[in-house]
Design a binder for these strands. Sequence first.
DNA 1: CCGAATGGTTTGTGAAGAACCAACCTTCCG
DNA 2: CGGAAGGTTGGTTCTTCACAAACCATTCGG
Lengths: 165, 165
Amino acid sequence: MSATAESSAGALPASSQGAVPALATVLLARIARVVRRRFETALGPLGLRQRQIVALSYLRGHGPTAQQRLAEQLCMDPSSLVCLLNSLEERDLVVRRRDRSDRRRGLVVLSSRGEDALGEVDPALARVEEAILADLDIGERELLRGLLARITAGELDWELGAGDP
Amino acid sequence: MSATAESSAGALPASSQGAVPALATVLLARIARVVRRRFETALGPLGLRQRQIVALSYLRGHGPTAQQRLAEQLCMDPSSLVCLLNSLEERDLVVRRRDRSDRRRGLVVLSSRGEDALGEVDPALARVEEAILADLDIGERELLRGLLARITAGELDWELGAGDP
DNA sequence: CCGAATGGTTTGTGAAGAACCAACCTTCCG
DNA sequence: CGGAAGGTTGGTTCTTCACAAACCATTCGG
């Protein structure tokens, strides 16, 4: 790309204050710890875990999804995903259906109970988000969400190692 | 706050497409999985882990830090932080010094070897970031980094449960 | 001066996540 | 029909890490 992009592949963002600012991904990793803890705290009473919510949330946003694709999107090992889906199926939060066009393939579908469960936890998760993003105004939160959504919408690089030299 | 803020405490962001978009924090949790895996892959050959880099990166950006504060900022249990610092001290990546004004208090200082180690991993981590944020342009990446930095700069709510009703 | 509190450390336990692997079954395709 | 694909099971191993109790050194207020 441009010289700027080239330099960014080997250097940290410039700082006007002398201290070396952390990479966005390092900051994101820090914030994710807090998100996780607070999500787990909020979800505990409902017997749910963050990773279940992440999966349910994905299905609510994307509709029925092939299991293999779901594993890719959630960056999970296929057998780990099977365990997760088993736990969701036990609670009737998702349904697995065979793809008629290729019966090897399983489609994971958010059930109505799953939608209800999400609806139930939404307020609590929204409060967690409110607290974590307290220093951003509404517009900035939307901006952040949009950027994060763009990142997750991209196909490139979800696979471990993809795109690496 | 405003009615908008009030409504956001109990509802998901409106979508123009019908599908319910995920919360920013849910998206962030997903992305963090990828960040972690790719960081661990990049750091493995150097015998480092993401959580060590997060700590070193914090110290590089903030200077000598009281241990208690570091635990807060990294959202870690004090005894877990002790283990982490022990592993960094063993590698001479940090130095612990007593605060002269209160000798109970320990200050954690990034050592010159720690700075060198960070310098060594910076290119690899920058490449991970480049790959993960590939769908954002340079300006958007800076914007994202700025928003994340604002979130981590905030004191409020790093404590588990703080700010909750 | 003393007791309570603070900051840090050690040791141990238990829980959870989750990658990885081998083996297996069903289905698809050339 | 054989190889590949999609999914599943069961197991192993590793890591994280919160939590708790007990301890030590230091500080501070009464």
